[in-house]
């Protein structure tokens, strides 16, 4: 398949929709968690307000080129992930640039933003940034194990790495979904998802409630605005990816919103129930049940 310039506007439209979904979810989720904690919580449009605020603050500080580029890398990573993702199955308009790559591209694209972000944060010179990165990297190395095993299992099951083709193979009812045809892989994958969604018990990387730790420590104003934009895109991209791999994909925007919302809520709910792990604890945890499930998933192919 070759590049068609008409893809560009449609892809951008898809991006905007995804972004909107992301902003929406990010408004709803704190509300739900607050309610679960017997609090009132924020307004669901609070993320929009924050975003406008961040972008309207004129920052006049930079720590250097890499610091400057960090958020750029971050957002580029998130946006590219959407652009390489077939959002709506069967739709030419919203299949984006999926033909340029496959599952492997997606997996490695995830690191593009992470690495750039980490580097940018690094240049700020703040030790907490570096500590956060170090924790995040350590955690991701093990969270990837069940994920990779699960994905290999699914790819072997469908004999393809192409996301589009995996979705195609799941059409025709729930009984064709990977969730049903390969439940062990799905379980392993979903457990792996917990590790990358920055929710408790695996959110020591950012440690959101205490002193600001993690890559964004030194970022503010427009920089933070860009990163916040990414926060509405990147998780959705991941969720959509899981939806495509395990839950039959989506044939229209409604299904997409529904499925991605449900998948998004899974780590949120887990986070509500379980307290936070230290990094070494979470590493050990991933090396137990999730990894065994992953191995089982591969073994059953």
């Amino acid at each position: 398949m070759n590049f068609d310039p008409m893809k560009i506007p449609w892809s951008l439209l898809g991006l905007v929709i995804v972004f909107t979904i992301g902003m929406f979810i990010r408004g709803i989720v704190p509300k739900i968690t607050a309610r679960a904690g017997m609090r009132i919580g924020i307004r669901f449009y609070q993320p929009w307000i924050d975003l406008i605020k961040h972008f309207s603050i004129q920052t006049s500080i930079t720590h250097g080129v890499m610091f400057y580029l960090g958020p750029v890398f971050r957002l580029t990573g998130g946006v590219s992930m959407i652009l390489f993702m077939p959002l709506i199955y069967g739709s030419w308009y919203f299949s984006n640039f999926a033909f340029a790559g496959d599952m492997v591209l997606f997996l490695y694209m995830m690191f593009f933003g992470t690495l750039g972000m980490a580097l940018g944060a690094g240049e700020s010179g703040h030790p907490y940034s570096a500590i956060g990165v170090s924790r995040g990297l350590a955690q991701v190395t093990v969270a990837e194990i069940p994920l990779v095993l699960a994905l290999l299992s699914v790819a072997a099951q469908h004999n393809t790495l192409s996301i589009t083709e995996i979705v195609a193979a799941q059409q025709g009812g729930i009984s064709h979904w990977t969730m049903v045809t390969n439940p062990v892989a799905t379980m392993a994958g979903m457990l792996a998802l917990l590790g990358s969604m920055m929710n408790s018990p695996f959110n020591v990387v950012l440690a959101p409630q205490e002193i600001p730790v993690g890559p964004p420590t030194e970022y503010h104003g427009t920089f933070l605005g860009i990163m916040n934009t990414n926060r509405s895109i990147f998780p959705v991209a991941k969720v959509v990816f899981f939806m495509n791999i395990f839950f039959g994909g989506a044939t229209n925007w409604g299904i997409l919103i529904l499925k991605s919302f449900i998948i998004y809520m899974w780590p949120v709910f887990v986070g509500l129930v379980f307290p936070r792990f230290r990094v070494d604890q979470s590493i050990r945890w991933f090396l137990k049940v999730p990894m065994l499930l992953g191995i089982l998933a591969v073994a059953l192919i």
Partner: peptide, 27 residues
């Protein structure tokens, strides 16, 4: 099993990067 087209990937990433970067420079 799959495909890749490094040039398109590079073009997409490059364009996105440039757009975001210019926006940031402007802001």
């Amino acid at each position: 099993y799959g495909t890749f087209n490094l040039q398109i990937i590079m073009a997409v990433i490059g364009a996105t990067f440039a757009a975001v970067f210019l926006w940031l420079v402007f802001a």
